[in-house]
């Protein structure tokens, strides 16, 4: 009979927040970093909504609205920045930007070799129209013959 209690929602919010933080700290793709940050915001939003329900105060929901607003602004600016950075270095990797280190420090580089890179997926290609598909000439001719 009793609904899922306040603390359950708080737990969910905390987990989302922590996951977002871990993602922000580890992932090197700038876009995923930003998605992680947004996930942290989602965790906070869950908390606020739960409090609003529990306290019977819509202020919590209004705060979430403001979070939405700020998140939208943040996303717009972040995307703009990411695009700009991408134009400079042709990479979304945050680790290419480490010029602000101490002058006598060597740049951090990836030492460990990656395992075999996954093979690019072999998509089915359609035969371009009006061009003879290569390598099938003989069989065709053979069949004709």
């Amino acid at each position: 009979m009793s609904p899922a209690t306040l603390e359950s929602y708080l737990v969910v919010g905390a987990v989302l927040f922590a996951l977002g933080m871990v993602g922000f700290l580890t992932r090197r793709n700038m876009i995923i970093m930003f998605l992680s940050a947004e996930m942290m915001l989602q965790g906070v939003a869950v908390n606020l909504v739960a409090f609003a329900r529990f306290r019977g105060d819509l202020g919590g929901q209004v705060l979430v609205l403001f979070i939405l607003t700020v998140a939208a602004c943040e996303a717009a600016l972040a995307l703009a920045f990411i695009l700009m950075l991408y134009k400079r270095r042709k990479s979304l990797d945050i680790s290419v930007w480490q010029e602000l280190r101490e002058p006598d420090q060597d740049p951090v580089q990836d030492e460990e070799p990656l395992p075999d890179a996954p093979k690019p997926e072999d998509f089915q290609h359609l035969t371009p129209a009006g061009v003879q598909p290569p390598g099938k000439e003989e069989t065709q001719e053979g069949s004709h013959a």
């Binding site: 933080m21 922000f24 700290l25 580890t26 090197r28 970093m33 945050i94 680790s95 930007w97 480490q98 010029e99 602000l100 280190r101 101490e102 006598d104 420090q105 740049p107 951090v108």
Partner: peptide
């Protein structure tokens, strides 16, 4: 402690966390 200042934003964030 100078190696801590390696210019990687995420490393700083990890220290903060």
């Amino acid at each position: 402690v100078r190696p801590v200042q390696n210019g990687l934003v995420q490393f700083y964030a990890i220290l903060m966390a």
